[in-house]
Every structure is written in structure tokens, then in C-alpha cells.
């Protein structure tokens, strides 16, 4: 039982970390801080504009694979994975 509870709180911590990054790259960099970031340029892009139209999307993709990978490890560590079902 506590095995499951540990697993769940580890999962919640991981989700909190990922969603914090998710929030920062889109809502903070792409919207809230877009004006100051636009003073920095990335090639022909203004940086805030780049986060809003390109950068946030790349980070989202990486985040999901990072989460899937870490959860795969957590499943095994806490012995709740599906492979033992068979």
C-alpha cells in the first residue's frame, strides 16, 4: 500500500516539475514576459516572439518524452509496471 502511495507522490512531484517548465516556456516567456524578451534577438526572431511561435512547441515535445521515460523508470522502481501482468 505504501509502495503505491510512494509511487503516486513521486509521480505528482514529476508532474509538478514538468508543468512548471510547461508554464514558463509558454505563458511566462511567450506572453507575460514577451515584451522584455523581444529586446533580445535570435537570428531574425525576437526572442519572445520565437518562444510563442516556435520554442514553446519544441519544449512541449521534449517534456512529454522526458515524462514518459521517467515514469517508465518509476513504474519499475516501485514494481507497478505492466510487464508482470502476463
Amino acid at each position: 500500500m505504501s509502495q503505491k502511495a510512494d509511487y503516486w507522490s513521486a509521480n505528482l512531484r514529476l508532474i509538478a516539475l514538468c508543468l512548471a517548465i510547461w508554464f514558463v516556456v509558454s505563458f511566462v516567456f511567450g506572453i507575460i514576459l514577451v515584451e522584455p524578451l523581444n529586446n533580445i534577438s535570435l537570428g531574425g526572431y525576437k526572442l519572445g516572439f520565437w518562444f510563442a511561435q516556435q520554442g514553446s512547441i519544441y519544449v512541449f515535445v521534449a517534456l512529454i518524452f522526458f515524462y514518459a521515460n521517467r515514469m517508465g523508470k518509476l513504474d519499475k522502481e516501485h514494481d507497478v509496471h505492466e510487464d508482470k501482468d502476463v
Partner: peptide, 10 residues
């Protein structure tokens, strides 16, 4: 752009 991709993270 952000809305229709960021939802997949959720």
C-alpha cells in the same frame, strides 16, 4: 500555436 500543442503535455 501554443494552445493547440501545449494541451498534449496536460
Amino acid at each position: 500555436l501554443m494552445g493547440w500543442t501545449g494541451g498534449y503535455v496536460l
